[in-house]
Design a protein around this nucleic acid. Structure first.
Lengths: 202, 202
DNA sequence: GTCTATAACAGGATAGAC
DNA sequence: GTCTATCCTGTTATAGAC
């Protein structure tokens, strides 16, 4: 083409994602989004004719796509449950930048609280992750109800750890979560799980 | 006085709290805050000369005060650990309206991400809750490191469950959390904890 | 495709009457 | 203490040159 895009779609959406994840949908102004991408406001509108909402929608779609490829797919893929969860831990660590990046599902949940433009996609994303975790727990030999409970718990810990990371301005909670995740989903109920710190104390 | 306040301080802050918890600091406009309280914008400025930020600060202060009285104090109070945690579960259920109300620590964490006007208070609040949970676990006989791990985990589950409640538009995750909390802090590591659903399956 | 410039509007905040 | 009316800034969004 005559005038090539000065920034690739992927990189563009990635930069936008960063802003939304840092300060949320409402907090992100076009001025910030423009600064973060290096494009002027009018250029952003050229790429996203429906404005900020469309930007957030595409950011969310890209994140969900990445999640499907790098989290959900490995969970359902080849190898032993332990191998798969190890891969997923690695990818979660990358996705959330070791706890320094918040989750879009949390940062985009506020707009209008109910029935906002992202509510349906967010709900589906939670359900998909729970389902994938549950399937893994099932494979590891847990009963259906137990597997679902473990999956929901794992998702709670994931999001809770990210909230704590922001509140405490530390990445420790997320690292603790990642270390605990395999045990949460796979370990036998009566084992000590992954409380390795406490071994020898109890 | 000649002209009595048309709305009491407590009720006023409560209404404001509702808005901030529903749509976050950035998302809450003065128009909404005025509508929610029944006061006009100028009247809000009479009560809160420093505007929206002061409103959020007082809302946060009131919440922290309530928390100190109804959560932290009972955790350190009289009675057996089991009795205390039961009281705390009851009060958490009230505070978060059974999962329908989000946590201010999450909804106010975004502004400027780092070193925002609420960052310090939020950090202290997280630390105080962890500390109080940890003390209870200690009393229940757990070693220091184990107690701290359990406390952090409980806080993760709390906030994660609230995020999930918003995302799934269901109060179930929070109810699951409340049911699990006593076991998280008190139960023996090798027990089945509070996975009551799975009893008999494993 | 990207830019400068600007329109149209909403948000936070004040002044001053009652 | 509360109100109506207004100000000013920042925000979303568009027009049109290059």
């Amino acid at each position: 083409m005559a005038r090539p895009q000065t920034i690739e779609e992927q990189e563009l959406v990635g930069r936008l994602s960063r802003v939304f994840r840092d300060i949320g949908y409402e907090g992100a102004s076009l001025a910030m989004l423009a600064a973060a991408t290096g494009l002027k406001k009018a250029s952003l509108y050229h790429r996203f004719p429906h404005g900020k909402q469309q930007m957030a929608e595409q950011v969310l779609a890209a994140a969900l796509s990445w999640y499907a490829t790098n989290i959900l797919s490995p969970l359902a893929g080849q190898g032993s449950p332990a191998e798969r969860i190890a891969m997923v831990v690695k990818n979660l660590d990358a996705f959330y930048a070791s706890g320094r990046q918040a989750c879009l599902l949390n940062m985009l949940a506020s707009p209008h609280t109910d029935n906002g433009p992202f509510a349906a996609a967010i709900k589906r994303a939670f359900e998909a992750l729970i389902k994938a975790f549950m399937a893994l727990a099932r494979e590891a030999g847990h009963a259906p109800a137990e597997s679902r409970a473990r999956a929901e718990r794992a998702v709670m810990l994931l999001h809770g750890s990210l909230v704590m990371c922001r509140g405490l301005r530390s990445s420790k909670p997320f690292r603790v979560f990642l270390a605990a995740l395999p045990g949460e989903l796979l370990a036998e109920p009566r084992s000590s799980r992954n409380r390795k710190i406490a071994i020898g104390h109890a």
